[in-house]
Design a protein around this nucleic acid. Structure first.
Lengths: 212, 212
DNA sequence: TTTCTAACGCTACGGGTCGTAGCGTAACTT
DNA sequence: AAGTTACGCTACGACCCGTAGCGTTAGAAA
């Protein structure tokens, strides 16, 4: 997703799609080996077998390049549709954990988030590239559970949306925190514990809401 | 907490404690204005009214300096002892959220975490300076709740420890994720929703464990 | 007081990165 | 064949890192 001028077929020499792919791969490799702070555009260019100027013709800066590199990784995530809500949640948790287990993901994701705290456009880019992609999973999982009758169809739309957001922050936050801050591995047992906590809490949440 | 040689009173000119304070404050200010990636040691030194070499006499590198700067902020956190577990949880959540609401905290914390993914000593330093300080709150809150009879005293010590770790990752993770990734504000209503979810889930967790 | 010692401010340095400019060449369209 | 754009290459100014050397200064010890 490098930046191009707008629309249709252009004249002149076309951009090399091979270079696009090579750059993204080189960025991932460099992130793994060098980490964020020692990541250099020159190094990426060399690895990709490309001139440094070619990088800057596509991405305005290092941050944008890394966001795009990471965003691509999040495409893999999907709701497993295992037949039960608990199974689906566990599945997503384990997928997400596996994603964060890759060195390039953990390093890049946090670095970009850190940078985004001072950079509004970057934050928007992250939201549309990464966050929305994950949030979709929550809505999807809920829809499946409602079809199965495991979850009631909430009437108060606003409350339902708030709950979905909460679930998203809890799941993604817990997985990220466990992996990066606590630096403990996520295994099936942990995923089960989190799922139990989550679904138990969800029941309490819905109960309280319908009571009031 | 700059690095000193070990023990007791030394001879020669003592380190200026005023410089220590000025450096930490300058670091916080610089983080707010420049963000992590544009943070420079030279700038910090100038702001603190100190020579750059003085920084390096105390901290081996930028990372360590920032970790210490951030760690100091986490000293404020404490369990409110409001009389109920729910009140305590909400209180801690709101405190933590307020902490992350400061620009210097959010920027620095994430940047340091990102860096730690490739830096083992840094990770240890974070764990002892920041993480342990927070984890204490969980244990403390549980002890209070057990005194009040709100929570049972678990017999399986290992399981109890795992639950405490889970709670910690969920609470801290959710707050961080909400603040930094979702970039939504944390208000009292959100804190209540999270608390409801958490305590409901905790009940389910304990129930399941005692059943098996 | 005098002596000793380590911290301090200052300056300068080598090594590295960023992001840009300018040029000749290569690839594709019309 | 002409036109247009991407590409590789080289060079550049600006900035930053972390260190070294030196004269000066603030306390402790004698």
């Amino acid at each position: 997703m490098p930046s191009r001028t707008p629309g249709a077929a252009r004249t002149g020499r076309p951009r090399s799609t091979a270079a696009d792919a090579a750059i993204l791969e080189a960025t991932r490799d460099a992130l793994v080996e060098q980490g964020w702070s020692k990541l250099s555009m020159g190094d990426i260019a060399t690895r990709a077998g490309v001139a440094k100027t070619t990088l800057y013709r596509r991405w305005p800066s290092k941050n944008e390049l890394v966001v795009d590199t990471v965003a691509a990784l999040f495409d893999e995530l999907e709701v497993p549709d295992s037949g039960t809500l608990a199974g689906d949640v566990e599945g997503v948790v384990l997928q997400f954990a596996a994603l964060l287990d890759r060195p390039e993901t953990r390093t890049a994701l946090m670095a970009v988030v850190a940078e985004s705290t001072r950079d509004e456009p970057l934050r928007d880019r992250i939201r549309s590239s990464i966050v929305d992609r994950q949030k979709r999973l929550v809505l999807q999982g809920r829809a499946l559970a409602q079809q199965r009758g495991e979850l009631p169809v909430e009437e108060d739309e606003q409350a339902a949306s708030a709950t979905a957001d909460l679930i998203f922050d809890v799941v993604a936050g817990a997985v990220v925190h466990r992996t990066l801050v606590s630096a403990e591995p996520i295994d099936a047992a942990w995923a089960r514990r989190l799922t139990t906590l989550l679904l138990g809490g969800l029941a309490a949440t819905i109960q309280e809401r319908s009571a009031s």
